[in-house]
Amino acid sequence: MTVDQHKSRYPEVWRRFGPRETLIRYAWYLGIVFIAAASLSTLDITWVYLLDAHVQAYDLLERMVPPDWSYFDVVVGAMIETVHIATLGTVATLLIAFPVAFLAARNTTFNWFTWAVGRFILVASRSINTVVWALIFVAIFGPGPVAGIWAIAARSIGFMGKLTAEAIEEIDEGTVEAIEATGASRLQVLWIGILPQVLPVIYGTTVYRWDINIRESTVLGFVGAGGIGILLYSSINQFIWQQVSVMLIAIFGVVVVSELVSAMVRKKIT
């Protein structure tokens, strides 16, 4: 086995990609970098502000310590309201998302029109951010937690409805057929043949969405829809940073706990 033999018998060059593939790959890289760069340069950004950003950030942090713990009592009440908004919003979602999901699932909808309506509701609900929904509901119901609850529900319907509709589309058709064969009505088929199969998915996504909703409900107050956000917004606007830090700590605690609870419950369900 000398080197000469290698040379005569085996190729000495091997390329992972051919020239064309390599070119395409680099074109992708370049394209992505170009888009990002073009985006940044097109945006109307005053870069000078970034120069002293760290100074500003440090200044802000400094003003936030020590937290003003005397404000904590007020914060507790607002945090409870925040959790209520998230929870009640999620419950309301459950009631609405379910029928919409049946419309939006191909195998349970009535006709193409109801299907399209169901799909549109899901897409519209998901496209509009909770805070934007809150803007709308504040205009309708006035400022306060009711607007917040509806905002949470309006956004969550799309999320839960989509996952539920997907679960319905994946159910075991045999079960449904067997129940239809007994002469059951449409409602009975739904109740007995389909609901039990999608329930686990609904439980799981509900708990998951609840956890997301806690986070969302912390900012609803920025547009007047109740919860801790109202206090947070006013303290920020009045530059009372030591209250702000108390609220941030409270939010951190509640969000982390809700995430742990949600993870625990989901583990138990599945």
Binding site: H6, P11, E12, V13, R16
Partner: peptide, 17 residues
């Protein structure tokens, strides 16, 4: 960049064989 020396590439082909 997967640029191994010619000896290595040849040796790899030989081993695969």
């Amino acid at each position: 960049r997967r640029q191994f020396s010619p000896e290595d590439v040849a040796a790899a082909f030989e081993l695969l064989d």
